[in-house]
Amino acid sequence: MTTGVTPPERLGSTRLSNGRRLGWAEWGPESGTPILMCSGSATSRWLGLPVDTIRRLGIRLIAVDRPGLGMSSAAADWTLGDWTRDISEFAEARELLEMAAIGYSIGAPFALACAEVPAVTGVSLVSGTDELAHPALAPALEPEVALLVKRVAASASDTERLIATSADADVLWDVVVGTSHGADQRVYADPAFNRSYRRALAEGFSQGPAGYARETVLAMSRWPFDPSTISIPVDLWYGDQDANPFHSPDLGATLARRIPAAHRFVVPNMGGAFLWTHTDRILRSLLHRIAVHR
């Protein structure tokens, strides 16, 4: 299959008031509707969405490297709250008065945290990592996930160091591909997607494994915000064959009940990578719900 993923059309970085930089990439018309892309584990700004869909819908897709990944400055002990403040300043600096956010896999809590950014008008989570440390999910967690959540709760710093000693771009690629559903395998086999994903991972680890380790610990921790206070539209998308234990043990059912304006979609016969095969449907839903909510 062909995903239509291409290299970024524009690359740059934005300096924040504290001196750090956020690296970013863009696709689509500069005058288009801005959508922030919060990508999966350790993937830098180099992985986007099918460019023909982006252009057809008039979207300006903006992928931003999280701290310590790609071109974004590392930040010791950064938090989801720090990420929210970074994106708020980023939006102001780049004059993004209104934008939406998409969170894929581990990018989900980072996208959802952006609901507190004044410029963000809607969020879509696709195959998203849930609040795995929430007590309501504890009985449903796979043993390896439950163990990691317990380790983070006991000592986040020790767990972070442990993760950093065992991860690199090749290891993560092998894990992602090797544990994926057949539908996902067809996405990963697309040469253009393969090149973009592998480059995104290589850049994600270009500063070493610390950025990946930090974001993993944050994803395994309690969220510093209450989803029940989110008032903007939130779409939750899951494939019914998604077997990734770090996404959501109940395909977002519990999370949907915690967010007042959430709509949950479960796509049949799909694994976790359907963001790149169902892009049009996902983006149209997000844009429609934002328009209705106004």
Rank of each mutant, 00 (worst) to 15 (best):
96 L>N: 03
143 P>R: 11
127 S>V: 06
107 G>E: 03
136 A>L: 14
92 E>F: 09
132 L>K: 10
134 H>Q: 09
142 E>W: 06
94 R>W: 10
130 D>W: 07
132 L>M: 08
93 A>K: 04
131 E>H: 14
117 V>H: 00
94 R>N: 15
122 G>M: 05
94 R>E: 15
108 A>K: 01
124 S>E: 04
147 L>H: 13
112 L>M: 12
132 L>E: 10
113 A>N: 06
96 L>C: 06
114 C>T: 07
90 F>L: 08
143 P>D: 13
139 P>K: 08
120 V>R: 04
105 S>Q: 08
87 I>F: 06
134 H>N: 13
99 M>L: 15
111 A>V: 00
92 E>T: 13
95 E>T: 15
122 G>R: 03
108 A>W: 02
86 D>Q: 13
120 V>T: 10
97 L>D: 12
132 L>T: 10
121 T>I: 07
117 V>F: 03
112 L>P: 12
117 V>G: 01
102 I>Y: 10
115 A>I: 01
100 A>C: 04
134 H>C: 09
103 G>M: 05
142 E>L: 10
106 I>H: 03
103 G>I: 03
127 S>T: 07
140 A>W: 11
110 F>K: 01
130 D>H: 08
84 T>K: 06
144 E>V: 15
136 A>K: 11
133 A>K: 11
127 S>D: 07
118 P>M: 04
102 I>K: 08
119 A>K: 03
121 T>Q: 09
146 A>T: 11
121 T>C: 07
116 E>R: 12
85 R>E: 15
98 E>R: 13
85 R>P: 05
99 M>C: 15
124 S>W: 02
85 R>I: 07
92 E>V: 14
86 D>H: 09
95 E>Q: 15
112 L>C: 11
93 A>P: 02
116 E>Q: 13
92 E>Y: 08
105 S>P: 07
145 V>R: 02
102 I>S: 09
100 A>M: 00
119 A>P: 00
140 A>C: 10
89 E>L: 11
138 A>N: 05
122 G>H: 05
90 F>W: 12
119 A>L: 02
117 V>E: 00
137 L>N: 09
96 L>Y: 06
139 P>Y: 07
95 E>I: 15
114 C>A: 09
117 V>C: 00
102 I>M: 14
138 A>Y: 05
96 L>F: 09
110 F>G: 00
128 G>S: 08
147 L>M: 15
119 A>M: 01
106 I>Y: 04
147 L>N: 14
134 H>T: 08
142 E>A: 14
100 A>K: 02
112 L>R: 11
110 F>C: 01
112 L>N: 10
106 I>K: 04
93 A>S: 08
108 A>C: 06
146 A>D: 12
126 V>K: 09
94 R>F: 09
105 S>N: 07
113 A>S: 13
147 L>C: 11
143 P>I: 15
134 H>M: 07
108 A>Y: 00
126 V>A: 12
146 A>F: 09
111 A>I: 00
134 H>A: 14
109 P>H: 03
130 D>M: 08
129 T>S: 14
118 P>G: 04
142 E>C: 06
116 E>P: 06
87 I>P: 03
103 G>K: 02
126 V>M: 14
87 I>H: 05
